[in-house]
């Protein structure tokens, strides 16, 4: 192992772990103001929106590939499929699509 790469990995480990850890230490046992708590409750759903778009559209050079994958996932989830079925279903739909086109 080259020490150059190992030092890079150690640095990356520190700067990745610290933001993950800090909030648990900083806000331990602290009651945050109501408005802030409200915002933090909103964060998961806003994050999910930002994680899905626009990323899902660009999983392939062919934008239809992403659009179809998104449509399949939204439809399956809307019909009440559980998460694993949504994942496997979208993969299946795109497999058929890339097999055909």
């Amino acid at each position: 192992m080259s020490s150059h790469i190992v030092w890079m990995i150690v640095g990356m480990t520190a700067v990745t772990y610290i933001p993950r850890l800090l909030p648990f230490v900083l806000f331990k046992g602290k009651e945050l103001p109501g408005f802030v708590q409200g915002i933090l409750k909103n964060v998961p759903y806003a994050t999910l929106g930002a994680l899905i778009f626009p990323g899902i559209l660009f999983i392939n050079e062919d934008i239809w590939f992403g659009l179809l994958g998104a449509a399949a996932a939204f439809l399956a989830a809307f019909l009440g499929a559980n998460v694993i079925v949504v994942v496997l279903g979208s993969i299946a739909v795109l497999s058929v699509y890339s097999f055909l086109f």
Binding site: Y45, G49, I52, A70
Partner: peptide, 23 residues
């Protein structure tokens, strides 16, 4: 083909997590 199709997996998971709450 499988590699390309599987690239949707995590996005599909995010959709699967989000939609029930959207409803």
């Amino acid at each position: 083909t499988l590699q390309e199709s599987m690239s949707v997996a995590l996005y599909a998971m995010f959709v699967g997590l989000l939609v029930p709450s959207m409803k």
